[in-house]
Design a protein around this nucleic acid. Sequence first.
DNA 1: CGTTAACATTTTGTTGACAATGGGTGTGAT
DNA 2: ATCACACCCATTGTCAACAAAATGTTAACG
Lengths: 221, 221
Amino acid sequence: MEAKQATLADRTLIQLQHAIIGGELEPGSKINEQAIAARFGISRGPLREALQRLEQRKLVERIPHVGARVVSLTEAKLADLYQVRAELEAMACRLAAVQIKPDQLDALHQLLDRQQAVFSQQPITEFQGDIDFHFGIIQASNNQTLIATLTGDLYHQLQMYRYQCSSGRRPLEALAQHRQILAAIQNGDGELAALLMRRHIEAGARHTQRVLRQKMEEYSG
Amino acid sequence: MEAKQATLADRTLIQLQHAIIGGELEPGSKINEQAIAARFGISRGPLREALQRLEQRKLVERIPHVGARVVSLTEAKLADLYQVRAELEAMACRLAAVQIKPDQLDALHQLLDRQQAVFSQQPITEFQGDIDFHFGIIQASNNQTLIATLTGDLYHQLQMYRYQCSSGRRPLEALAQHRQILAAIQNGDGELAALLMRRHIEAGARHTQRVLRQKMEEYSG
DNA sequence: CGTTAACATTTTGTTGACAATGGGTGTGAT
DNA sequence: ATCACACCCATTGTCAACAAAATGTTAACG
């Protein structure tokens, strides 16, 4: 009967984060504490706690005595973010090639199979599936610091860029690349997996960057 | 006349962090909110904010409705931490070799000169100097995500291990290695700098790990 | 007319009281 | 003697009011 005893601040964090990632709260817009608190029907206490966690996740920026605003998306930030991500996920691949456990390997294979089955019917939707794959690889690295860094801090920013810059995607290529990476890990070839992962992420970076640039232009033009 | 307009929570964060890193609050010990709040002469509000930031920095662990405790030091965490750090600081070296600016280069040379001058007189104290060097390299990478990850999250845990496991050190070797790394960066040889940095950090990891193990044994024995 | 200084308003930071949850203790039954 | 249950208390989560700071406005002065 495991009642999830989530605290109010936790639930608020999730709701706020969705609103930000989904673009409901526009990038760069100011966040008024009592307005948002009223909107969620809570006090300012838990809200401030949620805001602080979002600041840590680099989804909002706060200035003492001034307030919080939703971060704005820039090409520079995107490039920096993906560069670090590529490095760390490549590292995760090297570790996973040694550390991964049979059940984790099975789960990843099944995930890719499910994705492929979906693609053969519907047009394209992926999104969550791609994230799940990367999540699985990261977990398999078995390095807690690496896991915390990638899934706890970088991941949320990434999700924001990916969501707001999701245009017609290239999920078939991505799926093929995922299969290659997983095969390399299964063979214990960490270096190959790392190389493939780095290329895979760099391709994603270029794609997202292109969409972002286009979006910025039509905004200022 | 720049009056530091630090908020109460900010000051409390700094004080608490010093107490934790310095071992004044023992690893694994429970943190009672109102006790600490009384000790610092503040309310529980700002204290909770500071605690939350410390949780983010992985210096305390919090469980909802139960409370916060200072993290305990383990060899596994130490290994994971240094492994990620080595990877990221190696990356910082590669970037710094391309991105570093003349004034940053000068500042680092001067830092090493000052350290050397100190060593020729006093026995050994370093500690802050080593951190400053690594800080400088990281900054020179000019990748904001990398800087935030290394100096904002990983750095604080690292400092705790280094402070609590600081025995007789090997600052002369470290200084020589720093010089080699800086020279490689100056020559634009990022790969060499990265390699040297990785070795340098791995050496530090082994050293710290040895001291930690010794400390753990005498604690349980 | 532009600049600056004082003021008012809005918003954030802080506090102390109230509510809710978890752990500890003591009692009783097996 | 050990285990299970219920109750109580300590501690954390939440709230609403208060204090302090910053921005925007207004008005006076150069």
